[in-house]
Design a protein around this nucleic acid. Structure first.
Length: 919
RNA sequence: GCGAGGGUGGCUGAGCCAGGCCAAAGGCGGCGGGCUUAAGACCCGCUCCCGUAGGGGUCCCUGGGUUCGAAUCCCAGCCCUCGCACCA
C-alpha cells in the first residue's frame, strides 16, 4: 500500500473525539430532544433517575443506552417523545460526604450533578434537559410537603408508635424494605450494620389502605416482567381467611386470624406472641411469663428454639367445642403476622405440631383426605406428622376439566355436627357459625417515611405543647432546610433557631418536626413532575399528566422491584383518587428491568476493583462504540459480559461502515446507472434491494420489541453484504445509495454520532436524529427464496467437497419442471392415498414413470412446505448467481424453466434445483 | 418450604410462546484459503461423526409421553439462578 493510500484510509476513519462533541452541540442547538407542552400523547420513555454519586458507571450507561435508543427510534418514526432526566438527589451519601470532608451536602450534591450531567452529555444521551428535575431543590420538595399535607387531609398519614428497625450506623429508622437478612441477621441495606429494634413514634403513609388494589392489579400489568410481579405479590402477601374471637380466663377477648378455620375443632392450645398486649399484661403478674418474654426479646433469632414457649396458667374457650384450651406465650407466633395470636391445631400445622410434641399437648385430627385425594387416609398419621393439605383442589388445573371452581379434597372428621363437610365449605360455614368475619390480611406494612436525617424533605409539621402536631399551612411552604451542622445526631434537631417557631393554630411557641422524609417519597411521583417541571401552583399539570401518562416504557434495575415500584403505584392511585389525575391507576405501562453489566462473569463492583469505567473507555473508543457494544452483546434484560473483544468488534464495525460510506462519498467507488444495466430481472442489484427491504422490516420489528441485539445483527449482515457488493461489481448508484442511507438510519438510535456523520457524507440535509425511519415490508416470498438460495449454495459446497472437485469451471443449475411443482402443490392438499390420487391426474400421467416416482416421494415426505413457483425460483437463483461466482470462481448458468437440459431438470425438485458441476 | 426464571454444539448465545424448511442463526475462539513485499483490515470456506455428486448417523440436562413428525408441546426427575419465608 502506498503512503497516499494509507493517508486516504486514515481519512476514512472517524475520530470519536472530534465528531461526538460536534454533533452533541448540533442536537443541543437545534433542541432535537425537547418536547413542547401540549404535545399530544407522546411516547413517554423513562429511565430511572439516578442518585447523583458524581460517577457514572456502566450500569447507568446501559440503562440510558436502552432508553435513548428507543426514544430516538420512536422520534424517527415521527412520534412526539418525552425522554427526560433528573436527580434523585436527597439521601445519606451527601450527608456522609459532608461529615467526612469539609463540605455541605448541598454543594457536594450540586457538584456531583454537574459531573454526572457532563458524563451523560459525553455519551450523547438525548434527554430533554429543559425538563430536568432535582429533588433536593425547594422547587421540587415543596411539592413533597404539599402532597404530604394532602395525604394528611385524606387520612393517609398516621403518627404511631411502633417497633421499628433502627440502624445504629446511620442513626436512623429504616423501612422493612431497607432491611436485608444475611445469615439470619438483619442488616442495614446501606451500611450492613446489624439493625436494632426500637419503639418510636414515627410518620406513616397508610399504604395498606391500598394493599388490595396494589395486589389485584398486578395481574393486569401485562407489560411488566413476571418476576417483578411475583416479587410484589410476595411482598404484599395477600391471605384470605377469617377472624374469630376467643374468650380467655383472664377476661380478655382475643381476636385471631386464620386461613384454616375448617380445623378449629382440632385446636388443642392457644398461643400469643410475646409482644401481644395480653401477653404483656400476663407478664406483669407471672414471673415465668415475664422471664420468657424478656429472654426472647433480647436474644438473637437463632438462639431461640422454635418450639420454645411458656404456659400462662390461663385458658381460652374454643368457640367451636366449648373446650378450654391452655394459653401459651410462644416465640414462633409473630407479633406482626395476623393478630399476633392464634389457636393452634397440631394435627394440621407443622409448627403447631412441633410445639405440641415439645410440650406434650394432645394432637387431634379433624380433617382427612377425601376418596379422590392423592393421599390415602390410611397413610395419614397426625401423631407423627401434621397433615397440612389445605383441601383445595383447583379443578381448572386438572386436565380435561373446564370447571373453574375449586373443590375440596379434605373432609371434616371429629368436628361435631359438621363431620363429612368438605374443608372449603367448612371455612365458609364456620365464619357464621362461630361469629367471625371474613378478612383479607396482607403482609404489607404501612410505609414509615420518617428519617432522622438532615438531607431530605422536612416533614411540614409543627409540634405545639397545646395543640399537638399541627400541619404547616400551605402558604408557609416550603419548609426549607437550615444550614447543615456537623453533629452525631440529627442535624435538624441541633438547628435550634430553625426548630423554634410558632404554632399555626394558637400562635404560641412551638417546635418544628425534625424528621425528614424517606427519599422514596421523592421518587414516587417524579415522573409526573417531568410533565410540567416549571409549574409553580401545583405539583404537576393534571390535564397534561392525564394525557401523557402512564409512562409508556420504564427502564431500570431489578433492585427497585418492590420499594420504588410499589410506592410509585401507591402514589399514582392516591393522586387519582384525589382527582389530581383522571383515571390513571398505574404509572408504568411497560417495565423493562435491565440486566447487570458484568466483567469476567462477576458483577462490576468498585469494592473489588472489577470495573470498567465509562470515561476512559469513551476516550479510547468513543461513546457510540460503548452504546453499540452494550446493545449488541445481549438482550436488555439479560446480564451482559463486558469483553475487550466485544468492544473492539463494535468499534471495528462502526469504522467499517464509516469507511464504506466515506469511500462512496469521496468518489472512490465507481457506480453505474441502473438504466444502463440489463434489467432483465434477477440481477445482483435486485438481490441487494430485497435485502435492504428485509433488513428494514426485521430491524423495525426488533426495535419495537426491545431486541436491539437482533436488529443489530440484521444491520451488520446488510453492511457486510454491501462490502461484498462493492467488492464484486460496480454497484448500481440508486440501490447503493439507498442501502447506505438505510444502514445509517437503522444505526442512528444506537450509534447516533457516527450516523450523523454518515448522513452528512451522504449529502443529506438536516439531522439524522430527525430523519424519517425507513419503512419497508419483507419482500414477497423472501424467506422461501432465502432458504432456496442458502440450500443451493450449501448443496454446491457439499458436492464440490464430497466429489473432490478441485477447481470447478462451470456450475449449471436448473429448477424443477412445472409438472413437479404442480404435483407438489396438489399433494399439499391431499390426504390418504396420495400416489393414487396424483396419478389420477391426466397431466401427471403423461409424465409416466418419473411422475409416479415423484408422487411416491411426495407421499413419503409427510409435511410439504410452501415453495416458490418455477419462475420465482429461477429469479431467486439468478439474483444469487454472483454469490456462487464469487465463492467458486466458476461460470454459473441458471437455465430458465423449461429450457434446462432434461437430465438436469429431472434431478430437480421444487425448492431443490438440479446441479451439475464441471471441473 | 413456597414461588418465578433457566439448563442448546469449544465458549457465548438465538431458536422454544404459534411443532416440520433445525446439525440448530450471529459473535468469539480455532483451522484452511484469497488479497498483500509483509502485517493489519477485508474477503471465501471449514469447525459432531462417516461419505470421491447434494447422502447417512448421532444430537439441544435425564427419563417417559403426545404426534406422521419434538430443541420446540405434556408428565416425572436432576441441576442452576433469583425472590419470599417461623405468614397462622
Amino acid at each position: 500500500m502506498s503512503r497516499a493510500d494509507a493517508t486516504d484510509q486514515e481519512e476514512r476513519r472517524f475520530d470519536p473525539a472530534e465528531i461526538e462533541p460536534r454533533w452533541q452541540q448540533r442536537w443541543d442547538d437545534e433542541e432535537v430532544f425537547h418536547i413542547e407542552d401540549g404535545a399530544e400523547d407522546p411516547s413517554y420513555v423513562l429511565a430511572m433517575f439516578p442518585y447523583p454519586s458524581g460517577e457514572m458507571h456502566m450500569g447507568h450507561v446501559r440503562n440510558y443506552a436502552i432508553t435513548d435508543a428507543f426514544a430516538r427510534y420512536k422520534r424517527m418514526q415521527g412520534e412526539a417523545v418525552l425522554h427526560p432526566m433528573g436527580w434523585d438527589s436527597f439521601g445519606l451519601p451527601a450527608e456522609n460526604a459532608a461529615n467526612e470532608r469539609d463540605v455541605d451536602p448541598r454543594g457536594w450534591t450540586m457538584d456531583c450533578i454537574a459531573a454526572m450531567k457532563e458524563q451523560m452529555n459525553v455519551m450523547g444521551l438525548g434527554f430533554d434537559w429543559q425538563r430536568e428535575v432535582t429533588t433536593c431543590e425547594p422547587e421540587y420538595f415543596q411539592w413533597n410537603q404539599w402532597l404530604f399535607r394532602e395525604f394528611y387531609e385524606e387520612g393517609l398519614v398516621e403518627r404511631t408508635e411502633t417497633e421499628l428497625n433502627w440502624c445504629p450506623g446511620c442513626e436512623t429508622v429504616l423501612a422493612d424494605e431497607n432491611v436485608n437478612t444475611e445469615n439470619n441477621v438483619e442488616i442495614c441495606w446501606r451500611c450492613d450494620t446489624a439493625i436494632e429494634h426500637r419503639e418510636l413514634e414515627q410518620w406513616f403513609f397508610t399504604i395498606t389502605d391500598y394493599a388490595e388494589e396494589l395486589y389485584d392489579e398486578l395481574d393486569e400489568l401485562d407489560g411488566w416482567p413476571e418476576n417483578v410481579r411475583e416479587m410484589q405479590h410476595n411482598w404484599i402477601g395477600k391471605q384470605e381467611g377469617a377472624s374469630v374471637e376467643f374468650e380467655l380466663t383472664t377476661g380478655d377477648s382475643v381476636e385471631i386470624f386464620t386461613t384454616r378455620l375448617d380445623t378449629i375443632y382440632g385446636a388443642t392450645f392457644f398461643a400469643l406472641s410475646p409482644g401481644h398486649d395480653v401477653a404483656q399484661q400476663l407478664a406483669e403478674e407471672d414471673d415465668d411469663v415475664a422471664e420468657y418474654i424478656h429472654r426472647v426479646e433480647h436474644a438473637d433469632e437463632e438462639e431461640v428454639d422454635e418450639t420454645s414457649g411458656v404456659f400462662t396458667g390461663e385458658y381460652a374457650t374454643n368457640p367451636a367445642t366449648g373446650e378450654e384450651i391452655p394459653v401459651y406465650v410462644a416465640d414462633y407466633v409473630l407479633a406482626d403476622v395476623g393478630t399476633g395470636a392464634l389457636y393452634a391445631v397440631p394435627a394440621h400445622d407443622d409448627r403447631d405440631h412441633a410445639f405440641a410434641q415439645e410440650h406434650d399437648i394432645p394432637i387431634r385430627q379433624v380433617v382427612e383426605p377425601t376418596e379422590d385425594a392423592d393421599v390415602d387416609p390410611e397413610n395419614v398419621d397426625v401423631q407423627e406428622q401434621a397433615y397440612t393439605e389445605d383441601g383445595v383442589l383447583d379443578l381448572g388445573e386438572i386436565e380435561g376439566s373446564s370447571d373453574e371452581r375449586t373443590e375440596s379434597d379434605g373432609v371434616l372428621v371429629d368436628s361435631g355436627e359438621f363431620d363429612g363437610l368438605d374443608s372449603a365449605e367448612a371455612r365458609e360455614r364456620f365464619v357464621e357459625a362461630f361469629d367471625g368475619e371474613f378478612r383479607t390480611a396482607h403482609s404489607l406494612r404501612d410505609w414509615c417515611i420518617s428519617r432522622q436525617r438532615y438531607w431530605g424533605t422536612p416533614i411540614p409539621f409543627v409540634e405545639c405543647p397545646d395543640c399537638g402536631y399541627v400541619p404547616v399551612p400551605e402558604d408557609d411552604l416550603p419548609v426549607e432546610l437550615p444550614e447543615f451542622i456537623r453533629t452525631t445526631g440529627n442535624p435538624l434537631d441541633a438547628a435550634q433557631e430553625w426548630k423554634t417557631t410558632t404554632c399555626p393554630d394558637c400562635g404560641g411557641p412551638a417546635q418544628r418536626e425534625t424528621d425528614t422524609m424517606d427519599t422514596f417519597v421523592d421518587s414516587s411521583w417524579y415522573f409526573l413532575r417531568f410533565i410540567s417541571p416549571e409549574l409553580d401552583d401545583a405539583p404537576f399539570d393534571s390535564e397534561q399528566a392525564t394525557d401523557w401518562m402512564p409512562v409508556d416504557q420504564y427502564v431500570g434495575g431489578i433492585e427497585h422491584a418492590t420499594m420504588h415500584l410499589i410506592y410509585s403505584r401507591f402514589f399514582t392511585k392516591v393522586l387519582d383518587d384525589m382527582e389530581l389525575l383522571d383515571g390513571i391507576r398505574e404509572p408504568f405501562e411497560n417495565l423493562l428491568t435491565q440486566g447487570m453489566v458484568r466483567k469476567d462473569g462477576a458483577a462490576m463492583s468498585s469494592s473489588t476493583g472489577n470495573v470498567v469505567s465509562p470515561a476512559p473507555f469513551v476516550e479510547r473508543f468513543g461513546a457510540d462504540t460503548g452504546r453499540l457494544f452494550m446493545l449488541n452483546a445481549a438482550q436488555p434484560e439479560k446480564a451482559l459480559d463486558w469483553t475487550e473483544e466485544g468492544a473492539e468488534s463494535a468499534h471495528a464495525f462502526l469504522q467499517n461502515v464509516h469507511d464504506l460510506v466515506a469511500r462512496y462519498a469521496g468518489g472512490a467507488i465507481d457506480t453505474r446507472d441502473a438504466e444502463a444495466a440489463d434489467g432483465d430481472g434477477g440481477t445482483i442489484d435486485e438481490y441487494v434491494a430485497r435485502e435492504i427491504e428485509a433488513t428494514v422490516a426485521t430491524a423495525t420489528e426488533e426495535f419495537e420489541a426491545f431486541r436491539f441485539n437482533h436488529a443489530l445483527q440484521a444491520i451488520r449482515e446488510l453492511a457486510s453484504l454491501l462490502r461484498r457488493y462493492v467488492d464484486h461489481t460496480d454497484p448500481d448508484e440508486g440501490t447503493f445509495e439507498r442501502a447506505l442511507s438505510t444502514v445509517a438510519r437503522l444505526l442512528a438510535p444506537v450509534a447516533p454520532h457516527v450516523a450523523e456523520e454518515l448522513w452528512a457524507h451522504l449529502g443529506r440535509d438536516g439531522l439524522i436524529a430527525e430523519a424519517d425511519w425507513p419503512e419497508a415490508d419483507e419482500p414477497a416470498g423472501y424467506e422461501t427464496a432465502r432458504l432456496l438460495v442458502e440450500n443451493t449454495r450449501e448443496d454446491v459446497r457439499d458436492i464440490v467437497g464430497v466429489a473432490g472437485i478441485e477447481d470447478p469451471s462451470l456450475i449449471e443449475i436448473a429448477v424443477a419442471p412445472e409438472w413437479k411443482h404442480y404435483a407438489r402443490q396438489q399433494a399439499r392438499d391431499l390426504d390418504g392415498n396420495v400416489v393414487g390420487q396424483l396419478m389420477g391426474d391426466e397431466w401427471l400421467q403423461r409424465h409416466g414413470e418419473a411422475a409416479a416416482d415423484y408422487a411416491k416421494a411426495l407421499a413419503g415426505e409427510g409435511h410439504l412446505d410452501e415453495q416458490l413457483p418455477p419462475e420465482r425460483e429461477y429469479e431467486a437463483l439468478t439474483r444469487a448467481v454472483w454469490l456462487l461466482e464469487r465463492e467458486f470462481d466458476a461460470e454459473v448458468v441458471v437455465s430458465e424453466p423449461g429450457e434446462a437440459p432434461e437430465d438436469l431438470a429431472a434431478k430437480a425438485t421444487p425448492g431443490r434445483p438440479g446441479i451439475q458441476i464441471e471441473e
